[in-house]
């Protein structure tokens, strides 16, 4: 099975990748594609919060995406499946769905939502769209409730 692990550079997407690793059977997974999507018309086209990457003076969002993808891919180092790193460009949900179709994915892993207000007020997130339109099952990893920690 080909699994797509999507990252928007958030720490939650890193948590989602770790969550997949925590329960999935690596022998059933043939390949993992870590996919980051750069949003060209956004204020910040890509921000990497997953690693201690140095911000280059050229201000390359592509470098930020590459570094986030590398951090997530490193989670699966030595786990078994072959890991691909992919950076795409466009609308996040569309590109994740397209990637799923293109690689004939058996599962898409996305992180979703924050805690509290932002989650309930602002509907229409990437995860929601992926859930609705992906050609395969979707694992939406939600953040743990705050009080439990």
């Amino acid at each position: 099975m080909h699994v797509i692990v999507a990252t928007d550079g958030s720490k939650q997407s890193l948590a989602a990748a770790k969550h997949l690793k925590s329960f999935a059977d690596p022998t059933k997974i043939t390949e993992i594609s870590v996919v980051a999507v750069i949003r060209p018309l956004a204020s910040v086209a890509f921000a990497d919060d997953t690693s201690d990457s140095k911000w280059p003076s050229s201000g390359s969002f592509r470098d930020a995406a590459d570094s986030a993808v590398a951090t997530i891919a490193a989670v699966f180092d030595g786990w078994g499946p072959k890991v691909n790193k992919r950076v795409r460009s466009g609308s996040a949900a569309n590109e994740i769905i397209k990637a799923a179709q293109q690689y004939d994915a058996g599962l898409v892993v996305v992180a979703a939502g924050g805690r509290g207000l932002s989650d309930s007020v602002l509907v229409g997130s990437t995860a929601q769209r992926v859930q609705h339109y992906a050609p395969c099952p979707v694992l939406v990893v939600r953040p743990a409730p705050r009080k439990k920690r």
Binding site: D8, G9, S10, K11, A42, S43, V44, G114, S118, S125
Partner: peptide, 15 residues
């Protein structure tokens, strides 16, 4: 100003 909103991925402080 480098703060990115965790869900919307927007630089909300700068905005």
């Amino acid at each position: 100003f480098a703060k990115i909103h965790p869900v919307r991925r927007s630089p909300w402080v700068g905005l």
